[in-house]
Amino acid sequence: MAVLPIRIQGDPVLHSPADPVTVFDDELRRLVEDMYETMDAAPGVGLAAPQVGVAKRLFVFGWTDDDVEHRGVAINPELWITPAPTGEADEDEESEGCLSFPGERFPLRRGARAILQAVDLDEQPFEIRAEGWLARIFQHEYDHLDGTLYLDRLPRPFDRDWPKISRKRGWGVPGRQWLPGVDDLEG
C-alpha cells in the first residue's frame, strides 16, 4: 500500500465528471487500499478517486460516530438526499473542509439524510441510509465524482473568500498536489 498525492483545487481531474468503474481487478483493489491509506494519513473522513488523480466513480470513507465505525468503499454510487435546510449554516456545526483545499473550513448547509446505493469491490450492491455527518460525508464525496468541490456550493461571503486564499497559495492551476505525511498541509 502507498500514500498517494492529493490533487489541489484547480487540477482538471477535480473539475470534470468521473467515468464509471468498468473493470474490477487487482489494480482497482490496490487503488482502493492506497486511497484508504491516503485518507487515514491525511487525515480525512472521505476521499474520492479524482482527488488522487483517477477519474473514476468511486470513493472511500471512514468515520466513527458513537463508537460505531463507518468504513467502506462506494463504487459507481447513486445518492439520494433530503433538501438542505434554508438559512445560514452554523459555522460550528456545519463547517466542512476538503483534502483538495487543505487547511480551510467553511460553513455549508447539506441535506440531513442520504441514501447511498453502490457496489463494493466484489461488485455486490449495497445500500446505506445515513444521517448527520455520515450523510454529509457521502454528499461531499459524491460531489467530487461529478466534478464539484464544496467550494462551488458556498454561499456569500464565503464564495468570495476561497478564491483569494487559492490565489495567495498559488492554487487554482493544474498540477498542484500535496502528499500526506510529507507536506506541511492539513485538510
Score class of each variant (00 low, 15 high):
Arg109Met: 07
Arg109Glu: 04
Arg110Pro: 11
Gly111Asp: 09
Gly111Thr: 09
Gly111Ala: 09
Ala112Phe: 08
Ala114Gln: 05
Ile115Gly: 01
Leu116Val: 05
Leu116Thr: 04
Leu116Lys: 05
Leu116Trp: 08
Ala118Thr: 08
Val119Leu: 08
Val119Gly: 08
Val119Thr: 14
Asp120Cys: 10
Leu121Gly: 13
Leu121Phe: 10
Leu121Asn: 07
Asp122Arg: 14
Asp122His: 14
Asp122Trp: 10
Glu123Gln: 15
Glu123Asn: 13
Gln124Val: 10
Gln124Met: 13
Gln124Phe: 03
Pro125Gln: 05
Pro125Ile: 01
Phe126Leu: 06
Glu127Gln: 15
Glu127Ser: 11
Glu127Asp: 00
Ile128Thr: 04
Arg129Leu: 12
Arg129Lys: 15
Arg129Met: 13
Ala130Trp: 10
Ala130Cys: 11
Ala130Pro: 05
Ala130Gln: 05
Glu131Pro: 01
Gly132Ile: 04
Trp133His: 11
Trp133Ile: 14
Trp133Phe: 15
Trp133Lys: 12
Leu134Ser: 01
Leu134Glu: 02
Ala135Gln: 07
Arg136Ile: 04
Arg136Cys: 12
Arg136Ala: 13
Arg136His: 13
Ile137Tyr: 07
Ile137Glu: 06
Phe138Arg: 00
Gln139Tyr: 05
Gln139His: 02
Gln139Pro: 08
Gln139Lys: 05
Gln139Ile: 10
Gln139Val: 12
His140Tyr: 10
His140Lys: 09
His140Cys: 13
Glu141Tyr: 11
Glu141Asn: 09
Glu141Met: 10
Tyr142Val: 03
Tyr142Thr: 06
Tyr142Met: 13
Tyr142Glu: 02
Tyr142Lys: 00
Asp143Trp: 06
His144Met: 14
His144Glu: 11
Leu145Glu: 02
Leu145Ile: 00
Asp146Ser: 04
Gly147Ile: 09
Gly147Glu: 12
Gly147Met: 09
Thr148Val: 15
Thr148Gly: 00
Leu149Cys: 12
Leu149Gln: 11
Leu149Lys: 08
Leu149Pro: 06
Leu149Val: 11
Leu149Met: 15
Leu149Trp: 03
Tyr150Ala: 11
Tyr150Thr: 12
Tyr150Lys: 12
Tyr150Ile: 14
Leu151Cys: 08
Leu151Trp: 05
Leu151Thr: 10
Leu151Ala: 14
Asp152Ile: 05
Asp152Val: 08
Asp152Ser: 06
Arg153Phe: 02
Leu154Glu: 01
Leu154Tyr: 01
Leu154Trp: 02
Leu154Met: 03
Leu154Asp: 00
Leu154Val: 00
Leu154Ile: 00
Pro155Ser: 08
Pro155Lys: 09
Pro155Arg: 03
Pro155Ile: 00
Pro155Val: 01
Arg156Leu: 09
Pro157Ile: 01
Pro157Phe: 02
Pro157Leu: 07
Pro157Met: 03
Phe158Asp: 13
Phe158Arg: 11
Asp159Phe: 01
Asp159Met: 01
Asp159Gly: 02
Asp159Thr: 01
Arg160Met: 13
Arg160Gly: 09
Asp161Pro: 00
Asp161Cys: 05
Trp162Ala: 04
Pro163Leu: 09
Pro163Gly: 07
Pro163Glu: 09
Pro163Arg: 06
Lys164Leu: 15
Ile165Tyr: 04
Ser166Gly: 02
Ser166Arg: 15
Arg167Ser: 15
Arg167Tyr: 04
Arg167Glu: 15
Lys168Phe: 13
Arg169Trp: 11
Arg169Ala: 13
Arg169Val: 00
Arg169Met: 14
Arg169Lys: 15
Arg169Asn: 14
Gly170Thr: 01
